[in-house]
Design a binder for these strands. Sequence first.
DNA 1: TTAAACTTTCAATAATATTTGAAAGTTTAG
DNA 2: CTAAACTTTCAAATATTATTGAAAGTTTAA
Lengths: 168, 168
Amino acid sequence: MNLVEGKEQFIQAWGTLGSKWGINRTMAQVHALLMISADPLSTEDIMQELNISRGNANMNVRDLIDWGLVEKVHKSGDRKEYFWAEKDIWKVTTQVAKERKKRELEPVLKVLDQLSNVEGDRNDKNVKAFVEGISGIKRMATNADKTLETMIKAEENWFFGAILKLFK
Amino acid sequence: MNLVEGKEQFIQAWGTLGSKWGINRTMAQVHALLMISADPLSTEDIMQELNISRGNANMNVRDLIDWGLVEKVHKSGDRKEYFWAEKDIWKVTTQVAKERKKRELEPVLKVLDQLSNVEGDRNDKNVKAFVEGISGIKRMATNADKTLETMIKAEENWFFGAILKLFK
DNA sequence: TTAAACTTTCAATAATATTTGAAAGTTTAG
DNA sequence: CTAAACTTTCAAATATTATTGAAAGTTTAA
């Protein structure tokens, strides 16, 4: 397999993976492309490599910037903006963890808090099932939140080393 | 808040969360409904509670069964099938981890293996960026795979206890 | 065996999400 | 200032995904 084929395959695979995790396929592809590019790319480069429109390229790059995965780069003597992606995969992972924690886990924790004080007869099995279900989920969500927090602060080697050692 | 309102809110919240993680909103709602129901529900119950069609209810329940989150239950003296969801949230979590590992992580690991032996001049910075990018991702994916494996085999208390202690 | 009760399928439809591209907006060199 | 170079926006078009509901399939009681 040569470089061009390899890139193509990786971009497709990353796009497919992203779409299974609720991430826009094109956004994941732009991310993939930037991650394996030696140099920052312009919007035009991205449009050309992925065969997408200017608007689409712009929108997805901006989203990646919002996620903290991509940065704008300016080359001296050039008015164009270039885009560069973080390539340290541990940093990418913790950044994604951080964002998803903030965007998705924390809002759920808020809702769960409100739900746990539903009124009703605690002897009613329906009430009981609800309250127990919610409290279990809340406990799990809180643990997940703390675990992500730990992970976000950790170093890759230390973190995985510690986890893998758990079973030795 | 009363029980009916609480249920409604939880079902909506779970559906929203699911859709952000690449899970069909309705499937997540069916799961939510079953998790907080004291007794197993029939297809008709589900149709009525969520205002969805028979086909939709059937399809999503079947998917949940495929994911190992829901089971069929038969009541004696009744030909209808009823559906019951696992309520132990740790079991739910590890089951989801197991399935996603199998469905999404393992296929990616296979692709990454193929990609890491791309031909080309290792002094070419483009080849270098590609090979280094891929190898970093592969290392991370392998670690994630092992961590999930550890988690799947663990007990909730032991697992979170150990992780949270990592920082004390 | 058969017909009622129930479950599953799937083509058509609807809903949702993504993409385009041209127009509007912004920045900068001269 | 102003026009070229570049970026962003967004309504309309397209593509993707989910849903419906009636027909087909299956099971079981009698």
